[in-house]
Design a protein around this nucleic acid. Structure first.
Lengths: 195, 195
DNA sequence: GGCCGGATATATCAGCCTGATATATCGCCG
DNA sequence: CGGCGATATATCAGGCTGATATATCCGGCC
């Protein structure tokens, strides 16, 4: 009925690089694409089970060296590789991203600009933190991984993050100014006291 | 267990402006905040029912003028207004937005830059369409609604969209160039033929 | 030796949300 | 009067999150 699980393809893409367990998948995803994609265990484990039934992935033969410790490492099958390749070619279908900050601002019109201003400030400092973190990762990638064929792709995704965050910071500054102007000229916003 | 329904607050915010039915809510949301927030009927109707049970909203007394046509118009209660005001003050909790385009690009490293290039081109022209549409809305808002107290908030949300889309376009251009460079120097990407 | 805490590891579930589907009525135009 | 598009509500499969439960391994510390 609804849209196709994207989690399946995140799994396939990661397993193509190296066979892994569900636990490892989560951290590998976090480490490599964590700034624009994350997966929860509650999504990964059931999806892996399903995909194994559909023969898109399969369990690696268990090495008994690890004692009684349970550990299931998965590996892509040829069918899995094909499914991934097809998905990669399929166009990304457009989707309106929900923006909770903007929604709160919009309804803030009914309350007054002061609370909105606080939201914008919070968002701004959060974005600054993310920006600093991304710049650090960028430096890291630039210096290590001299010959990794994935390197230009890392750089592309980091650039997307940087440009997006910089745009957001610029918007925050605009919004701050506009809201401060509105605070000085009370206008027709009705004030509602906090609980 | 999981996070709080944001739909509830979208409903409350909209009903504070004017009492409405579920159907009207959907179009009012689409018209006013549609470029950063949307709600589906499958979400609205059950949520409205719940909220009525919790006395956050209530049915307006039915006017019998409309014949047998079923129509339920909801109105906010005082409790609803309080709940909205509290939500507006609560900080937006940070969330990593999934970006399917970047995911496809990242895994594109295993396939070659040609398909990635196509994805970037598609995304670019989609963004250009959205940008043109937003600019039109911006013009509209600028000229009509001369004294609407909501006007500066409209402008704020439109500016967020514009800056974001412009940043995305700039990224698309960077990405295009990088991928074209990679196409010319085959490097170590393995090619996989389509099905 | 024994104990604790943090990392490793898998599983399950409530609840939010989307997109699809079903159903029925109303007003208008030809 | 028949068809079509807008109005209107409802339901459901299935994706996904965040919380919770459970158990093991390993290293450090007393």
């Amino acid at each position: 009925m609804a849209r196709e699980s994207t989690c399946r393809f995140a799994i396939l893409g990661m397993l193509c690089r190296e066979p892994m367990s569900g636990y490892d998948l989560r951290s590998a995803i976090e480490r490599s694409v964590g700034h624009f994609w994350q997966e929860s265990y509650g999504n990964l484990y059931p999806t892996l089970k399903q995909m194994a039934q559909e023969h898109l992935v399969e369990l690696e033969p268990e090495e008994p060296s690890r004692g009684g410790r349970v550990r299931k490492a998965y590996r892509v099958t040829e069918a899995g590789r094909t499914a991934l390749a097809q998905w990669l070619r399929r166009p990304v279908l457009p989707h309106v991203e929900r923006n909770e900050l903007l929604l709160k601002l919009f309804f803030g019109a009914q309350v007054g600009p002061t609370d909105s201003l606080a939201q914008v400030e919070r968002s701004r400092s959060e974005a600054e933190g993310l920006l600093a973190a991304l710049r650090l990762i960028d430096e890291n990638v630039r210096h290590s991984r001299g010959d990794d064929p994935e390197r230009p792709y890392w750089h592309l995704s980091i650039r997307a993050g940087l440009l997006g965050l910089e745009a957001h910071l610029r918007w925050c500054d605009e919004a701050r100014e506009a809201l401060q102007r509105m605070e000085r000229t009370p206008g027709s916003t009705k004030k509602r006291k906090a609980k």
